[in-house]
Design a protein around this nucleic acid. Structure first.
Length: 227
DNA sequence: GACCAGGCACATC
DNA sequence: GATGTGCATGGT
């Protein structure tokens, strides 16, 4: 009897959680910080995002109203450590304009908006792709959406699961796994992604694959594979 | 000095 | 529709 892909995905969770512990993600103190961090982390190391967040805090610009008041050059200089600072300043400005002007967000409250509609609107913004949109939805606004990232794809390629490499197929698979084989809670949506990032950072980096010590390899859930 | 990091948009074939 | 390239900084 062959295990379904959903069962295989779900089986990863207890192994990862036992190894890394519950992650309490997203690493951000406020909803606004999470939204900003989700955009700033695009193609850069989280340590660089932390520097930018620290800059914004020091400048007392880590709130919706304050950030929108910032001159463009000032915003660019504060987020500079995350790279692509001109693009990101532009993307951030457009995102905040959408949230505030179109949705009437005050920068703090949750939003009552249909998740599917909200997601399509975010994706229509320049610079908001599926991973950024889903990070904002899941961690920023508490929606049951699974975030697929580079680590998720890399991990999947090392598991005995045949699945297409496109974002939506993978997202749907993980969402079915969480809803059918785990408890389907928001906490599970958040923590499974967080666990995969931990796995990626410690054992699944491009340059330093350490399969022997990887908790999934030790639990015989992951096959050894040269990179 | 090359390569990588929790992407995305746009051009080109 | 797949594949390549620009965007830019900081750590290894």
């Amino acid at each position: 009897m062959k295990k379904s892909p959903e069962k295989r995905i779900a089986a990863l969770y207890p192994v990862l959680r036992d190894h890394f512990g519950f992650q309490h993600w997203w690493p951000g103190e406020t909803r606004f910080e999470i939204v900003v961090g989700a955009l700033l982390t695009q193609n850069c190391a989280w340590s660089n995002v932390e520097k930018a967040i620290a800059n914004l805090k020091a400048a007392e610009a880590l709130s919706l109203a304050a950030m929108r008041e910032l001159p463009r050059e000032r915003l660019e200089s504060l987020i500079r450590p995350t790279g692509y600072f001109r693009q990101k300043a532009d993307r951030l400005t457009r995102l905040l304009a959408f949230l505030a002007d179109d949705l009437g967000w005050n920068g703090v409250s949750p939003l009552k908006r249909d998740t599917g509609k909200f997601r399509r609107e975010l994706l229509a913004l320049s610079g908001i792709g599926p991973e950024t949109a889903d990070s904002i939805l899941c961690y920023g606004f508490g929606r049951k959406v699974f975030v697929v990232d580079a680590y998720t794809k890399r991990m999947l390629s090392r598991l005995p699961i045949a699945v297409a490499d496109d974002y939506e197929t993978i997202r749907a698979l993980f969402e079915r796994a969480i809803c059918r084989e785990l408890d389907g809670s928001l906490k599970a949506f958040k923590d499974l992604h967080a666990q995969i990032v931990m796995l990626g950072k410690h054992y699944c980096r491009k340059s330093t694959p350490r399969c022997e010590a990887c908790p999934l390899f030790r639990a015989r859930l992951c096959r050894r594979r040269r990179v």
